[in-house]
C-alpha cells in the first residue's frame, strides 16, 4: 500500500511540474525571439519539456522494481 501510493504521489508531482512549466510565468521566460539549435526557443522548450514529462511518466509507472506493484492501488 505504502509503495503504491508512492507511485501515485510521484505522478501527482509530475503533474505539478508539468503544470508549472507549461504555464505563465515560467512559460514567459522562454517566450522570446531566440533560437535553440536553429529552432524557435519556445517551440524547442515546449517539446523538450513535453518529452521530458512523458519520459518521467513512463519511468514512474514502468519501473522494474515496482513491477509487482499494481497501478490500481495508486488512488487507494
Amino acid at each position: 500500500m505504502q509503495r503504491s501510493t508512492l507511485t501515485g504521489q510521484r505522478l501527482v508531482a509530475v503533474f505539478l511540474i508539468g503544470f508549472v512549466l507549461f504555464n505563465y510565468p515560467v512559460l514567459s521566460l522562454f517566450d522570446r525571439t531566440a533560437t535553440l539549435f536553429g529552432l524557435p526557443l519556445v517551440f524547442a522548450y515546449l517539446f523538450l519539456v513535453w518529452a521530458g514529462l512523458i519520459l518521467l511518466m513512463a519511468w514512474v509507472v514502468e519501473r522494474r522494481g515496482d513491477r509487482a506493484e499494481r497501478l490500481d492501488r495508486a488512488g487507494g
Binding site: 507511485t7 501515485g8 505522478l11 501527482v12 509530475v14 503533474f15 508539468g18 503544470f19 507549461f22 519556445v42 517551440f43 515546449l46 513535453w50 514529462l53 512523458i54 511518466m57 509507472v61 497501478l71 490500481d72 495508486a74 488512488g75
Partner: peptide
C-alpha cells in the same frame, strides 16, 4: 504554438490517470 494546449492539457491529465481514470 497556440495549437499545443489542446495536447498539453491531456498530457497533464494523464498523469492523474492513475486516480481519476482508474476511479
Amino acid at each position: 504554438v497556440g495549437f499545443l494546449p489542446i495536447y498539453l492539457g491531456p498530457t497533464l491529465v494523464m498523469t492523474l490517470g492513475g486516480f481519476l481514470l482508474l476511479k
